[in-house]
Write a protein that binds this DNA or RNA. Structure first.
Lengths: 351, 351
DNA sequence: CTATCGTACTTGCACGAGCAAGTTACACGA
DNA sequence: TCGTGTAACTTGCTCGTGCAAGTACGATAG
């Protein structure tokens, strides 16, 4: 190629040799120093007397060669990588979970970790294969993990944080156990609006049980505290006819306030109500969960409980990065926010 | 230690020492062989004459110790890991993309790879930091990548596959360029139903442009081929009022068939139509994209174009795992399916 | 003129796996 | 009895880092 001769902006590799990343040895050679010195400078190792001139020499050389340490070598040496692996459940995750991932990613990067997710489906090979191919520092589990896998991870010295375990490191505010709070918020809102007979739209997908159970529990708790009857729980598959049948059952039971597992189910009910001529919110108040885009678009706009993932992420990231499994109470006091601030009720027309 | 002498079922680590994974050296010691032999047996290295008895001895020892190779050491030695890193865009991904991830994950596992995704948002640190912390074998990019990052990856010998680049390894059937086909399918369906004036609901989020542009192009192409007027393109934010305004513009232009960028926008329009008393499908046919759960629930049920991700995943996985950047045409002929089979039109009530 | 000390480095091993090249041990043929 | 061949291994180097322990050198003290 006939490019101008005087400029070599990119590090052009010797022709024939395939591109090789610069190593710390390359940097050492470039700087006229030993590998060790380079390591000390670049890792800011304390108690090493290295004058600023030399430090700069090293940093310049590193910059010139575009040096970045090899993750493989580093984690071979140190025994663990700086990767946080999030195991995604095999059930469909909603947009809220995605928002959490984004937020977590940013937070953990701030702590020097790399956040990565693995979607495993039922057809996936053994989980062990996966984490062994990565050796993460921490594994964040969103749903439940087979006991065998948990044990294997623990045996290998990998920290496992389960977002749904109220007794785990994340404490009761963990993501799923926060589900109790979500249910409470829905029910309390309906109660405040004068609804006296509550219904619950429960998902028919057994895989989301980990999330659904605590939410329903929250609704139950509120009913008991407020002296209302037990909520009328109906499992609702996401099909129009199913929603119609469910709605019929709630009407028969005199339900005037409905908590749905998520916005999707809430919308199914809303559609059914429109079809069968049931007035929302006049005859039935409906509250969803997630604040999906959709919840603003439907008629009437859906009242919904949103999780403030920016705050939740900060808390989770702090725990993940904290490492030390200290006394929970002390930990929680120092955390950026409590689980209480992490919910927000968006009151729209449907309630 | 006073443990029963005859039984050591679980590999009990010496008390005080933190659990350490078994290495191939441990296996060698256990089997009474050298490390090299262990390596040859476990990796099934050809041209090594190792009798079946010995092989079994090694495998037994490995099983007894629960040995699994260290990914770090392996990728230090070989220069690359068996990880395929998928860079998720910072815009909200729909359920269809998630399905693709699941399918890809399964497929790539079949090829011995581990599939992992990284959600990067605008606030993320430089991409370079991320891939250097992982050294993946291949990077699958869903949206566009800054040229600097592409160059850096290439320079480090990491293969980059861009799902949206029609000129890339995935060929014109890549995921986004398949978008042209999606748009075509929507428009052709409406044309077949006798619609003569088409509109397009374009997303207002600039980040999804990579996906939206080819879809709109497909609609345009069909209009030209069928002798219809240019489609009336309106940018629709996902707010009810915006949908109302957009609908008014289409009505004014005499639009009787509407292609929406995705189901979400289609639903917004449907809601608007219901509110303003426009009959769907009598006065306006609407076609979405994605086959979200929602599309079956709304009134009227939404006609939509679904991507058959099982098939798309098979093709993408084959390219990712294939490695060799061979002649595209030859490659494509041997692939499990062509991009044409990967779309499915689900005709429901809205058209 | 040596002993001591602190600075500014370097030498060298370890991490765990892959693999080329070398080494045994034994069988078979001349 | 001595090659010669081959099956069945082992030795030893390599990948790139981190870090403990060593060393060279100049300055100062005795």
């Amino acid at each position: 190629m006939s490019s101008p001769p005087e400029s070599t902006p990119a590090p052009v590799p010797a022709p024939g040799t395939r591109p090789r990343r610069a190593t710390s040895a390359d940097v050492a050679r470039e700087a006229g120093l030993s590998r060790a010195t380079v390591g000390y400078v670049l890792n800011d190792v304390p108690h090493q007397k290295i004058p600023e001139v030399t430090r700069q020499r090293v940093r310049d050389a590193a910059a010139r060669l575009g040096y970045t340490p090899s993750a493989a070598a580093r984690s071979l040496r140190s025994g663990r990588s700086d990767i946080v692996l999030c195991l995604m459940p095999d059930w469909p995750v909603g947009p809220s979970v995605l928002a959490l991932l984004d937020a977590l990613s940013v937070r953990l990067e701030g702590h020097g970790y790399t956040f990565v997710t693995h979607h495993r489906s039922a057809a996936s090979r053994s989980l062990a294969e996966t984490w062994k191919a990565i050796t993460p520092a921490v594994v964040l589990v969103l749903d439940d993990l087979p006991a065998a896998d948990t044990a294997a991870l623990a045996a290998a010295g990998v920290r496992v944080v389960n977002a749904n375990d109220p007794t785990g490191e994340l404490g009761a505010g963990g993501l799923g156990a926060g589900g109790v709070r979500i249910g409470r918020r829905q029910a309390e809102h309906l109660w405040e609006r004068g609804r006296t007979r509550l219904g619950y739209a429960y998902p028919d997908d057994p895989r989301v049980g980990t999330f659904a159970r605590p939410r329903l529990q929250g609704v139950r708790d509120v009913c008991r505290e407020r002296g209302l009857a037990e909520p009328v729980v109906v499992e609702v598959p996401t099909e129009p006819e199913a929603a119609d049948r469910a709605l019929a059952r709630w009407r028969a039971a005199g339900v005037d306030g409905l908590c749905a597992y998520n916005d999707e189910l809430a919308v199914a009910v809303l559609g059914s109500a429109a079809r069968t001529g049931l007035a929302v919110p006049a005859e039935l108040g409906v509250v969803g969960v997630d604040d999906t885009v959709l919840s603003r678009l439907v008629q009437p706009a859906l009242t919904t409980v949103a999780v403030r993932f920016d705050r939740a992420a900060a808390r989770v990231a702090a725990v993940l990065a904290g490492g030390a499994i200290g006394p929970l109470e002390a930990d929680r006091r120092s955390l950026p926010s409590g689980p209480e601030d992490e919910l927000r009720l968006l009151v729209r027309r449907s309630s």
